[in-house]
Design a protein around this nucleic acid. Structure first.
Length: 427
DNA sequence: TCTGGGGTCCTAGGACCC
DNA sequence: TCTGGGGTCCTAGGACCC
């Protein structure tokens, strides 16, 4: 039987999450800002209508915010993560297989469902059920490949007459839609590719679908060739039953304010290293390589610039916070130069391996640092367990104290769903 | 005052081997 | 007169996504 995907994508996800708990803002334009209240990362329908662009720095739209009374929110990832989980649980109750693709979208396996109910009706059931259970609006696109399902979802969002659901399983309908869709809207075609394609007079999705696959591979790469084949209804992207294990884990942040002193940087790097290592343990993985970077603010053209990264191969893969934090601090001290205003730092873990499939150290020292050190593994488990209740109960000594690097989040909404003290109240 | 964070995949080119 | 060819591995960089 032919594969059929339904792509379910939440509308203006972060903005919708904020509105959900603020019914008073139902008709108000809302924007959500990135970390540090930097740029716009989500806009409600009303904000889009006002011409607020995705990705603009917040300080560029201060006029519009005042003039139109736009409500501004800092990113509240705890809230969005929790709402996302609820949406995905509902989707899992509706389809036999669900591939969670990002925080606000998932591919459903709907192969054969049309034997019971037409695809479009099924799409409406999904949309209505998510709205009833969670209160968030979604659109649904149904098609034989992921790339076409993305396109169907785009149409569902763009054309209100569709009611937010588009069944694109019919090839004639696929071609009619593709003729109307600019090539840059195709999944996998970004800014650079758009410019190159337009120069070759490939301006619509249909032009791309009708291009010669061999030419695409030669002039671009196998990636674009696959995209074109997918537009023709030939699946080239395999179904992901289980998410593939991560290859790298990163934790980095811009600071709320510039930092000069080494101890303040040490605090930030310790914190990022701790967070990255916690993610590592969450995936039952061990890191074989550690990379730390620091940099000044490249947007401040007049200030002296410094950007440096340093890496270290761990003798034996580890998931011990004490080891990773210690080594991250060593790397930081090796690169640190005084006299600069640092704006950002980060810690990356790579060469990740699972419980098995790694080599132990021939010269393993007395202080066990690796997977074979049972005491370290148990200590970390206890620490994670305690921190599950309150994320800051136990931390590395280096992280203690008020954070000089703390993010700016001046418009943060309450933790409506994850903190008893912040539950929404109905008056 | 002031521009996010976290990922993946692919390719080209150099080093090295026989 | 005139510098092989084929293969693998690694890294850096580019492109994309949300």
């Amino acid at each position: 039987m032919k594969q059929v995907y339904a792509l379910v994508d939440c509308n203006n996800f972060y903005a919708s999450c904020e509105k959900l708990f603020r019914p008073d803002l139902r008709q108000t334009p809302v924007v959500v800002l990135s970390n540090n209240d930097g740029c716009v990362v989500a806009r409600s329908r009303e904000a889009k209508a006002l011409g607020i662009k995705m990705g603009v720095p917040a300080h560029h739209i201060q006029d519009e915010i005042r003039r139109y009374g736009i409500q501004v929110f800092s990113s509240n990832y705890i809230l969005y993560g929790d709402m996302s989980r609820r949406v995905m649980v509902t989707l899992e109750s509706l389809a036999p297989r669900v591939d969670v693709y990002s925080i606000d979208e998932a591919f459903l396996d709907v192969k054969g469902i049309d034997a019971l109910v037409p695809f479009e009706d099924f799409g409406r059931q999904v949309k209505d059920t998510v709205y009833q259970n969670i209160g968030l609006p979604v659109c649904v696109g149904i098609a034989p490949t992921r790339t076409l399902a993305k396109l169907a979802n785009y149409a569902a969002k763009k054309y209100p007459a569709t009611g937010g659901v588009v069944d694109l399983t019919d090839p004639a309908r696929q071609r009619r839609l593709m003729a109307r869709v600019p090539v840059e809207e195709v999944w996998g075609v970004g800014r650079k590719l758009t410019a190159k394609l337009q120069a070759m007079s490939v301006t619509t999705a249909l032009h791309l679908a009708d291009a010669e696959p061999a030419t695409l591979r030669k002039r671009f790469s196998v990636v674009l060739e696959r995209t074109a084949r997918e537009l023709n209804g030939i699946p080239c992207l395999p179904w992901e039953d289980a998410p593939p294990p991560k290859k790298q884990i990163m934790c980095s942040r811009s600071f709320g304010h510039p930092i000069q002193a080494l101890p303040d940087l040490e605090e930030a790097v310790s914190h990022y290293a701790t967070r990255a290592t916690k993610k590592l343990r969450g995936g039952q993985q061990y890191a074989g390589e550690l990379i730390v970077f620091i940099r000044t603010n490249p947007f401040r053209a007049t200030a002296p610039q410094y950007s440096k990264s340093a890496s270290l191969r761990l003798v034996s893969p580890t998931q011990d916070s004490r080891v990773i934090v210690g080594q991250a601090l060593n790397l930081l001290r090796s690169m640190y130069q005084s006299g600069y205003e640092y704006a950002k730092a980060g810690v990356m873990l790579s060469e990740l391996v699972g419980e098995t499939g790694h080599q132990t150290d021939l010269f393993e020292g007395p202080v066990g640092t690796d997977i074979t050190d049972d005491r370290a593994v148990r200590l970390m488990a206890v620490m994670d367990d305690i921190n599950r209740k309150s994320s800051t109960s136990i931390c590395m000594a280096r992280e203690a104290g008020p954070a000089a690097y703390a993010m700016r989040r001046e418009h943060l909404s309450p933790a409506y769903t994850t903190n008893w003290k912040q539950l929404p109240k109905v008056m």
